Computed example of a mutant assay.
Amino acid sequence: MSAPAEDKETAALIERLEKQFPDVAPSLVVAVIREAQDAFQDYPVKSHVPVIVERQVKDRLRGRAGEATDA
């Protein structure tokens, strides 16, 4: 996947998860996404990485709902 396509896909994921987890600070949503993506940086096959990342992030954010939100 090209960098612009990845950026667009990441932006859409951020938007989706911010809506799904309104009680989690947007900056935390972004940080958790970036951390999950970084874990797959060296994987040779990237086709399933977005799905895996989204699942991992959702699992982590479910445990963080209600943490302080950005002002």
Rank of each mutant, 00 (worst) to 15 (best):
68 A>G: 14
43 Y>Q: 15
69 T>S: 10
56 Q>D: 14
17 L>S: 01
17 L>G: 00
54 E>R: 07
42 D>C: 06
48 H>M: 12
23 D>A: 13
64 R>T: 01
49 V>E: 08
58 K>G: 03
54 E>Y: 02
52 I>D: 06
16 R>P: 01
52 I>T: 13
11 A>G: 07
4 P>K: 08
67 E>K: 09
65 A>Q: 08
5 A>Q: 14
50 P>E: 05
58 K>P: 02
43 Y>K: 15
51 V>N: 09
66 G>T: 01
13 L>F: 07
9 E>P: 03
46 K>N: 14
64 R>C: 03
50 P>Q: 08
12 A>E: 09
52 I>A: 11
32 V>T: 10
21 F>S: 00
40 F>W: 14
22 P>V: 00
51 V>G: 07
20 Q>V: 01
53 V>M: 09
23 D>P: 03
67 E>G: 04
7 D>I: 07
22 P>E: 02
38 D>C: 05
43 Y>V: 14
5 A>N: 14
38 D>R: 12
9 E>R: 14
42 D>M: 15
24 V>R: 00
40 F>T: 08
52 I>F: 08
60 R>E: 13
41 Q>A: 15
37 Q>W: 07
46 K>H: 13
18 E>I: 01
55 R>E: 13
34 R>T: 11
9 E>T: 12
56 Q>L: 14
58 K>V: 11
12 A>P: 02
47 S>C: 05
58 K>R: 15
8 K>L: 11
28 L>Y: 01
66 G>W: 03
22 P>S: 02
49 V>C: 08
20 Q>T: 07
16 R>Q: 07
49 V>F: 13
32 V>G: 00
69 T>V: 09
3 A>Q: 15
4 P>G: 06
8 K>T: 14
18 E>N: 09
32 V>L: 05
62 R>H: 09
4 P>F: 07
40 F>E: 05
9 E>H: 08
38 D>Y: 09
53 V>H: 02
70 D>K: 04
50 P>M: 04
71 A>L: 08
17 L>M: 04
31 A>G: 13
19 K>S: 07
57 V>P: 02
39 A>S: 13
59 D>T: 12
